[in-house]
């Protein structure tokens, strides 16, 4: 197929892409919204939303999701920014960056599964602290273990955009800052940090939104409790088969996501994300 005119060429580009847009972007969102707003007979109803907002459990769960996602993002950011900054000063920085990315190629489930072994009551961590004379702790199925594993999974996705935005900063600016009398710390705070803001925002997006909807880690590490919106949706779709309520929670999750997007909008370009 050899398009001749410009119009034909445009069609050639756009037809498969448009089919994708309609079928896999519009349709699923519309269907989700439709599910949440109808009864099984197809009549309009706000019943599902009423159930959601009247239930203390769901509201608490929503708060929990946001709170955990916030903590995960914060921990990840605090570990990742210095890492990205220091990596950027290494000679073979591209090589070290690849080593940061490499763990993301190991299947997510396998890594999570490793933590089950590490953290279990007779696992390696407990054996280790046992050597220090501390009695075995219940590490698995706690909020801490959930935060630890989630942060572990997300760290590369925070480092990557921050590293990229740091690498894009003209090294001349750091020189100029020193030249004007600023020491390393002042340069970091007044020049490097503001200029790497787009990377930080991209990193927050890449970590916060997936963290809102984690369900696999919650199930395996967090002790199979339904504590986040992600777990609730999975529960309703795949266990209790209450798609309408599941869709309602989904719509609420989307709204939360849009709010985050607006808050971290400006100039975000390269974003990478994690599925989990």
């Amino acid at each position: 197929m050899m398009p001749k005119s410009k119009k034909q060429r445009q069609l050639f580009y756009v037809v498969p892409y448009s089919i994708w847009l309609i079928l896999f972007v519009f349709a699923p969102l519309v269907l989700l919204l439709f599910q949440s707003l109808t009864t099984s007979n197809g009549d309009f109803t706000l019943h599902n939303y009423a159930v959601y907002f009247a239930s203390g459990t769901y509201l608490k769960m929503t708060f929990n999701s946001v709170w955990y996602a916030f903590l995960i993002t914060l921990i990840t950011l605090l570990i990742s920014y210095p890492t990205a900054y220091l990596l950027n000063q290494l000679k073979q920085k591209q090589f070290w960056l690849l080593l940061v990315i490499l763990p993301t190629w190991i299947n997510l489930l396998l890594k999570t599964y490793a933590f089950v072994g590490l953290l279990s009551k007779t696992g390696t961590v407990n054996n280790f602290i046992g050597l220090l004379g501390i009695a075995p702790q219940q590490l698995l199925f706690s909020d801490w273990s959930f935060l630890l594993v989630a942060a572990y999974i997300e760290i590369p996705f925070m480092i990557l955009p921050i590293f990229n935005s740091l690498a894009e900063i003209n090294p001349r600016l750091e020189q100029a800052s020193h030249d004007l009398g600023a020491n390393k710390w002042q340069t970091l705070r007044r020049v490097i940090l503001p200029l790497s803001m787009p990377g930080i925002k991209a990193g927050i997006q890449a970590v916060f939104i997936p963290s809102l909807s984690l369900f696999m880690i919650t199930r395996l590490i967090g002790g199979n409790r339904v504590i986040t919106l992600g777990t609730a949706i999975e529960e309703h779709f795949l266990v209790t088969q209450n798609w309408r309520l599941g869709s309602t929670i989904g719509v609420i999750l989307i709204v939360a996501m849009v709010i985050i997007m607006i808050l971290t909008r400006d100039r975000v370009r390269k974003s990478s994300r994690k599925r989990g």
Binding site: N170, R172, L173, Q175, A176, S177, H178, D179, L180, G181, A182, N183, V191, P194, L195
Partner: peptide, 20 residues
């Protein structure tokens, strides 16, 4: 003596102005 302690300043070829 580190750069920031010297009583000299530089006008760089590409100016090195802070874009932020």
């Amino acid at each position: 003596v580190p750069v920031e302690k010297r009583r000299m300043n530089t006008v760089f070829q590409d100016y090195g102005l802070f874009p932020n």
